[in-house]
Write a protein that binds this DNA or RNA. Structure first.
Ligand SMILES: [Mn+2]
Ligand SMILES: [Mn+2]
Length: 758
DNA sequence: GCTATTA
DNA sequence: TAATAGCAACGCTTT
DNA sequence: AAAGCG
């Protein structure tokens, strides 16, 4: 497969000089109005370059934009209809003593809607279907539940649709970790014999908490409390072996919460008593109350680092058993591998402490599971670790290092709280929505495993999630992917239908990076690539591009270590027109951010005067971007010319502060470079809501002009917006970037007239 | 980070 | 099967 | 032809 560079050396007639607009011509333009030229401008410096990507500014013969390309992904098949999709809980916490709420334990199993209908044929057993949270048919995985559920309609012979959770039981018949269900869920087909064995070895029950259909009647429009009453009525008094009724507490969840703390549940669900049922919706009427646990552990060893990680990969930690016999210190029981939460500096500090403690033999009573080669130490260091769950007899889930407890004697460290750790059922189901997806990624990272995400019917392979991309912060690739999962509702509209350039950092932000335009081949099945010319007039420069808009593309790119999302200023439906144009404010070395804000304000003042709308954002690094929405069919040159005029004007008024000089050594010290040269076919700028490969793991964050104008006083700091922190702001201020899509476009004709007169 | 090639 | 090599942008500017 | 620029 040759992919030799094409058209590198052939000096076609195309490469002859074509007229450019020079500095003098610019003055002319300004002086005479703006009959926008069809050639790139040269104001002492013109040419291609970009934050990421580029392409020539060739433009004289404008061809009509190509036909609209249909980017529809295939729809997933074999899914349950909406009426069989469960209502989901929002992430947010809720008060524990809200009289309007009903509290339930967050069961540790697999969410399921179970349909049961009496057979039309007398004497035949009722039909049962078990639907997963994603609408997949799971009936075959739980054959033992079928007769039990069928029994519910035997007497009354009318159908039911139940909502609840399939929960695994331990030897004592108590609910236990969903991990026990793995063998029954696991993807690859099992033989009938194997599945029979799974059924025998791992008993399950269905814990019902809602009733959606009672006979022919839909209860979805009824308040939750009424549905619950009907459910209790239909299930009856007798406690069944395999179909249970969920516990609940009306108006006060404190007692349940205390038990959750004590018994190590994952959390509670709070439901508005009056709320109706919305199939398939994540509704704020239902809220998760999550419990995070944290306690001390003794360090008994460490594992070798992988890849770019320094010093060690994970701490192997444990606790002392109960000290029944006071005569001796009890043995150390393994609790888990703690591999995240370390900064570079902390890794180094701990490594220095661990070195002298090295011993030959494991201090643990039983040999911990070996992920990597283990090195043992004298069990004297005590660390604080937070985690989501700690199943009895199992390992910590999602452990994160919080710090060293210099103040604690290692011998006194024992398990706090009680056993029984549930987990989130959704972790099994990669299609279960944002939270489920984020949790699945967290699980995979924790387990250091590869996995496949199914996103809108596209299967995307992910791996190496524990690789550290920001060493100074300890931010991993997994955290980057989780960030993109959460910010997807904001960033996807911003990149929708736009070709994307990749800037890849396979070894983290300190490693070697490279640009990539060409979509890899083969792509995950169902991911589209769109052939586009690097240069609009040169057909031989065509390469396949990834196009934004889908979660699958977004996460696939992040998996390839494309940290930022760098879209074109065109959408594919009009690939040679710009629908956005931007100023890129690049502060020189040592320039304070407040100076960047000043320059932005001056630009805003000018745009305001000529009635051109604009939206500012941090770049996610040290600069600022200002975007202008353009009307349909605007040539790139028109957008760029407007930016050039305004940039040049501002720079000429404030020569000590701002410049449009492209050549670094000809710029004054401590100036802000107003870069308008991205506004060219094929060039890019990191989009709003994109992560950046900056030292602080920044996110390009839209601002209001009010914030920019008040910024110096308010100490506006782009470093406040990181992949760890930005979601809070977004929930407060919403999608400021949407104004570029929904608001007025710049009126270039009017702007030109005003520019002339001003 | 991924793929094809090589020992 | 495991280790390794090769690969992943571009155009316009100034010197 | 090579280096600088983003
Ligand atoms: Mn910039
Ligand atoms: Mn720039």
């Amino acid at each position: 497969m040759h992919r030799a560079r094409q058209g590198v050396s052939t000096l076609s007639e195309d490469q002859g000089r074509r007229p450019t607009v020079h500095g003098s011509a610019l003055r002319q333009c300004v002086a005479q109005g703006l009959p926008l030229p069809a050639a790139p401008i040269n104001a002492g410096n013109a040419g291609a370059s970009s934050e990421a990507g580029s392409s020539p500014a060739r433009a004289s013969r404008r061809r009509r934009p190509e036909a609209v390309i249909d980017l529809d992904l295939r729809m997933p098949s074999n899914r349950a209809p909406l009426r069989l999709r469960p209502m989901l809980a929002a992430t947010d916490g809720a008060a524990l003593d809200d009289a309007r709420l009903v509290y339930e334990p967050k069961y540790d199993g697999i969410r399921a809607l179970i349909e049961v209908a009496p057979s039309a044929v007398r004497g035949e057993s009722p039909r049962v279907a078990i639907w997963s949270r994603n609408g997949n048919d799971k009936t075959a995985q739980f054959p033992d539940l079928v007769p039990a559920v069928a029994g519910l309609v035997a007497r009354r012979r009318s159908a039911l649709l139940l909502d609840g959770e399939i929960v695994a039981l331990d030897a004592e018949g108590r609910p236990t970790s969903f991990l026990k269900l793995q063998p029954r869920i696991h993807r690859h087909r099992t033989t009938a014999r194997e599945s029979a064995r799974a059924v025998r070895d791992q008993p399950v029950v269905f814990v019902a908490f809602d009733l959606l259909d009672d006979g022919d009647e839909s209860l979805r429009g009824r308040p939750f409390t009424e549905r619950r009453a009907r459910l209790e009525q239909r299930l009856g008094r007798t406690r069944r072996k395999l179909v249970w009724l969920s516990e609940c507490a009306v108006g006060d969840g404190r007692e349940l919460h205390a038990r959750a703390q004590r018994d190590g549940w994952e959390g509670l669900i709070a439901k508005e008593a009056t709320s109706i049922y919305h199939n398939g919706k994540r509704s704020p009427a239902w809220q998760k109350i999550k419990l995070l646990r944290s306690q001390e552990f003794v360090v008994g060893g460490w594992t070798a680092p992988r890849q770019s990680r320094q010093h060690f990969g994970a701490l192997i930690v444990g606790v002392r058993g109960d000290n029944a016999d006071e005569a001796e210190v009890p043995g150390l029981t393994y609790a888990g591998h703690v591999g995240s939460g370390f900064s570079d500096a902390e890794l180094a500090r701990l490594a220095k402490l661990l070195g002298p403690l090295s011993v030959a033999d494991s201090p643990f009573t039983a040999m911990p599971p070996a992920h990597e080669t283990a090195h043992w130490v004298e069990p004297v260091l005590v660390v604080q670790v937070k985690f989501t769950e700690w199943p009895d007899g199992g390992a910590l889930r999602h452990p994160v290092y919080l710090g060293l407890r210099d103040d604690r004697p290692a011998r006194s460290v024992t398990r706090e709280g009680a056993p029984a750790g549930p987990a989130d059922p959704s972790a099994l189901d990669p299609m279960g929505g944002i939270d489920a997806l984020a949790e699945r990624l967290e699980d995979l990272e924790q387990a250091r495993r590869r996995g496949t995400l199914e996103l809108d019917g596209v299967r995307v392979a992910v791996g190496n999630l524990d690789k550290v991309f920001w060493p100074a912060l300890g931010v991993t690739k997994g955290e980057l992917l989780r960030f993109y999962v959460r910010i997807a509702p904001y960033v996807l509209p911003a990149v929708a239908d736009r070709p994307l350039v990749m800037k890849r950092f396979p070894n983290g932000i300190d490693g070697k990076s490279f640009y990539q335009h060409r979509a890899p081949s083969p792509l995950p099945d169902g991911l589209p690539a769109l052939p586009l010319r690097e240069s609009p007039d040169r057909p031989e420069t065509e390469v396949p591009y990834l196009v934004g808009g889908s979660l699958a593309t977004l996460l696939y790119m992040a998996q390839l270590a494309a940290i930022s999302q760098d879209p074109w200023f065109s959408r594919v439906s009009a690939i040679e027109s710009a629908d956005l144009t931007a100023f890129d404010l690049d502060p020189g070395p040592g320039v304070r951010f407040r100076q960047v804000l000043d320059v932005a304000c001056w630009i805003h003042d000018e745009l305001d005067k000529i009635g051109v709308p604009s939206v500012p954002k941090t770049s996610g690094s040290s600069g600022l971007h200002i975007y202008l929405p353009l009307p349909d069919d605007t040539p790139y040159e028109a957008g760029m010319l407007l930016c050039q005029i305004v940039a040049t004007l501002v720079a000429s008024r404030h020569p000590k502060v701002a410049t449009v000089e492209r050549m670094v050594k000809r710029r004054r010290e401590k100036t802000v470079y107003i870069d308008y040269l991205q506004n060219i076919y094929g060039k890019t700028l990191a989009t709003a809501y994109s992560a950046r490969a900056s030292d602080y793991a920044g996110v390009s964050t839209p601002l209001t002009w009010r914030e920019v104008h008040a910024g110096a006083k308010q100490k506006l700091d782009p470093r406040a917006f990181t992949i760890r922190s930005v979601m809070g702001r977004l929930e407060r201020v919403g999608d400021l970037w949407a104004a570029l899509r929904t608001g007025e476009k710049a009126n270039l004709r009017a702007a030109a007239a005003l520019t002339t007169n001003g």
